[in-house]
């Protein structure tokens, strides 16, 4: 019995350590994602004559006939993806996953270089984003989503059995992008309220019912300026109802972080 106990305790300890480690590890993962985001945006900017980041979205999608759906203008990363996620996140080519792994890696590196170049470009034109009209954006994003959907539909026929897990991830990305766009389009605050406020961050947890209606909104990290927090919550309320979430979704929450500044 003693031995059994010991092993049990030991194994528990290892488990706990493992969990903690994975926690930390995965957290870093999400951090990585955050760093990765500008990547997509910058690709788009490069291919566009205008510096407006989102506008270019469809262009990027078109030249790649059967792309994975990752080319969302602003895809939201899953916070805790499987280790593969990083790679999956990137592939701009139709990945034949079995052969493609090493190729993908190279591509990824290339991409990163491109990103850097594009990043600089964007830095040169930091004002541009302010000017972009929301409606226009929204339309373009819609178009992009349509495009992606089409290609996705094709894919579904052929690849679904192989990539179902992947597919779910991408589906989430889509859905998150829609939520993102809808809320952003509805988020406003008088400039006069933000003067000399510095950068504010508010974090809201959002749950959506299967029919797309709001289920729950919780402010988990106030910004310290309640009118800013209110503006965020109002944006969600104005944005509701949302599109129907994918059928097989359970327990999915959105952690929405609102920042008063423009993305750097």
């Amino acid at each position: 019995m003693n031995i059994f106990k010991r092993t049990l305790v030991l194994s528990l300890c290892i488990h706990i350590i493992g969990i903690i480690c994975s926690e930390i590890f995965l957290k870093n993962r999400t951090e990585n994602h955050r760093v990765l985001y500008p990547v997509h945006l910058i690709d788009l900017a490069e291919s566009s004559s205008k510096p407006v980041v989102k506008e270019a979205a469809p262009k990027e999608v078109k030249p790649v006939p059967p792309p994975k759906p990752k080319q969302e203008p602003k895809p939201k990363p899953e916070p805790k993806p499987e280790p593969k996620a990083v790679k999956k996140f990137e592939p701009p080519e139709p990945p034949e996953p079995k052969k493609g792994v090493p190729v993908e890696k190279k591509k990824e590196e290339k991409k990163k270089e491109e990103k850097d170049v594009a990043k600089k470009e964007i830095e040169k034109k930091p004002q541009a984003k302010n000017a972009d009209p929301v409606e226009n954006d929204a339309k373009k994003v819609d178009r992009a989503i349509e495009e992606i959907k089409k290609t996705l539909a094709k894919k579904e026929e052929t690849e679904r059995p192989l990539l179902s897990e992947d597919f779910v991830e991408r589906q989430k990305q889509f859905y998150a992008a829609k939520i993102d766009e809808k809320i952003k389009a509805n988020w406003s605050i008088p400039k006069a309220l933000l003067t000399e406020m510095g950068v504010l961050e508010a974090i809201v947890i959002l749950r959506i019912k299967p029919d797309g209606e709001l289920d729950d909104i919780r402010l988990i990290k106030p910004s310290g300026f309640n009118k800013f927090d209110e503006s965020a919550i109002r944006a969600i309320k104005k944005a509701a109802p949302f599109p129907h979430p994918p059928m097989d979704w359970k327990n999915v929450e959105f952690e929405i972080r609102f920042y008063s500044n423009e993305m750097v």
Partner: peptide, 19 residues
């Protein structure tokens, strides 16, 4: 852990500055 896995993060920057 699994519940946390189901949380999708969205970052939104720069509200429209209108009255």
């Amino acid at each position: 852990q699994t519940i946390a896995f189901g949380r999708i993060r969205i970052d939104i920057y720069g509200p429209v500055l209108v009255p």
